[in-house]
Amino acid sequence: MHWLFEPGIWSNAAVRTGAGVGVVVATVSALVGLFTVMRSQSFAGHALADVATAGGAGAGLFGFSPLAGFVIGSLLGAGAMEAIGVERVRQRDVATGVVLGGATGLAALFLYLITLSSSSAGSTQSILFGSLFTVSNSSFGVIAVVAAAVCLALAALGRPLLFVSVSPDAARARGVAVRRVALAYTLLMAVTVGLSAIVIGSVLSTALLIGPPAAALRLGRGLWTTLALAVALGVGAVGFGVVASYDSYYWWPSHRALPVSFCVVALVVLELVLVNVVVRTTRRRDAGARV
């Protein structure tokens, strides 16, 4: 195990907190993301991270708490998308695009004003890519509480949401308030994405929201198995990604560590590719056996 865990990795407090937060965020993202993938809302899931960033920049400018800025920004974005119209898939695409375009404009303004007032270097990059290793111990508690609340709400919403996602017409016929369920879910997704965007950056946020659930869905099992698989794949990618990033410091003579976001994303993509290859080859073998 020595080759895997470089000496001293767990005695580093930043790494410990980072890994803990990463596991929490990966779990919530996997649970919420399963419905994002099923409902083909990946674009909204990703766009909300950028919209949340604009909120975070606004909070920085006006002196609010960044976490509140991210979550409120994301919620406002989700509300705007829903208000523009989400009945048909292509309408949803346009609604998401318009909100994203507007929000990035605001982000450009806020970031510009921030650099005018404080010349805080490094803001763009840390907003885009975040860094698990810079999460403070105090925000860990807040993040855990919000994450738990999201999970509870998802559990409450789960059954009608599944119904609406699988067959909206049948759900409507049975008297489910399809629009309201969809709105509730989008807001839930917004909180999740806002949370993960501030902690791990918008790139990693999207990767963890979409990748593990997509891989789990590809394996095609029952709902509970799929949820468990998605969580396992997400947490696994974060865990090994953190370790790989820490270890990579020793990989090059120059001692430049690979960013955590890169390691985690690479693992998520690897998982998805492997699952696709495995599923495809077993399907082909099954088809061959039948003939």
């Binding site: 890519f129 790139v203 999207t206 990767a207 997509a214 960013p259 994303v265 998520v268």
Partner: peptide, 9 residues
């Protein structure tokens, strides 16, 4: 989504 995050990473 995967293409995007992979390239950004």
């Amino acid at each position: 989504a995967m293409a995007l995050v992979m390239m950004l990473a």
